[in-house]
């Protein structure tokens, strides 16, 4: 209990004094995760819509696979990305291992199935409502997907936020591919793992509280900006 109180106090001190190390790794956490979420949303949201409006032979299999991939173990993703980008791997020449870029790539792989899967669920219901109208209006597939993505945007924000939540708290993959290098690839989660290992519980807890506060702040900010849960809006 004492450790937790100390952690809280330490967290308060770090935030109030705007500790430069804390600011740096917090900014890097945000940069990596927000970039990964944006890229994964750009892939996952249209993929979800596409799966909802198209009927093809392997559709059920693809959806089941997507749902299964939501539980992809980050450590395994990290290992595979590590092998692909290591000196002897196929992408070794790019020299991306132990950079924020490869951390973003690993996170995109982890959260794209989550975003696509939740987006598909949301859009499937909207498509059931819109089906007759959009068919009757002689829309193209692209127009249907655009209408569904736009009109379902508030539900889709939940999908993206779920992806963000998974990515910001993720440690296994980015530890492996990023290497937790000070001033280069250290982020909040890997720093927590390191400080815990060193027995520096107060600092680790402080970083943990900052991480939780960050996740809550991003969610609140987006909800306020998009004005969900307000009266007659969807």
């Amino acid at each position: 209990m004492n450790d937790i109180l100390q952690g809280l106090a330490e967290a308060g001190r770090l935030v109030i004094t705007l500790d430069p190390d804390l600011a740096e790794i917090t900014a890097r956490s945000l940069q990596v995760t927000v970039t990964a979420t944006v890229i994964a949303s750009a892939i996952g949201l249209p993929l979800g819509a596409w799966l909802a409006v198209n009927r093809f032979r392997m559709r059920r299999v693809v959806i089941a696979l997507l749902n299964a991939l939501m539980g992809l173990p980050p450590v395994v993703v990290g290992l595979i990305v590590y092998i692909l980008f290591s000196r002897s791997g196929p992408f070794g020449v790019l020299g991306l291992l132990f950079t924020p870029t490869v951390m973003i790539i690993a996170q995109v792989i982890i959260i794209t199935p989550i975003i696509a899967s939740i987006a598909h669920q949301a859009i499937r219901e909207l498509w059931a409502d819109y089906h007759d109208l959009l068919i009757s209006l002689n829309t193209t597939r692209g127009q249907r997907m655009r209408a569904l993505l736009w009109d379902g945007r508030r539900a889709l924000m939940t999908a993206s936020l779920a992806g963000f939540g998974r990515a910001i708290g993720e440690v296994g993959a980015i530890m492996i591919v990023g290497g937790n290098i000070d001033n280069a690839t250290r982020v909040l989660t890997t720093a927590i793992a390191l400080e815990t290992g060193k027995g520096n519980f107060a600092l680790a807890l402080a970083l943990g509280f900052v991480l939780i506060a960050l996740a809550i702040a991003v969610n609140l900010a987006l909800h306020m900006l998009s004005r969900t849960e307000r009266g007659s809006r969807w």
Binding site: Y130, L133, S136, G152
Partner: peptide
């Protein structure tokens, strides 16, 4: 032919707009 017809359903389809 498709573009020159319109259909009004028994329960109107409301878009979220």
């Amino acid at each position: 032919v498709r573009a020159r017809q319109a259909f009004v359903f028994q329960s109107p389809v409301l878009m979220r707009r």
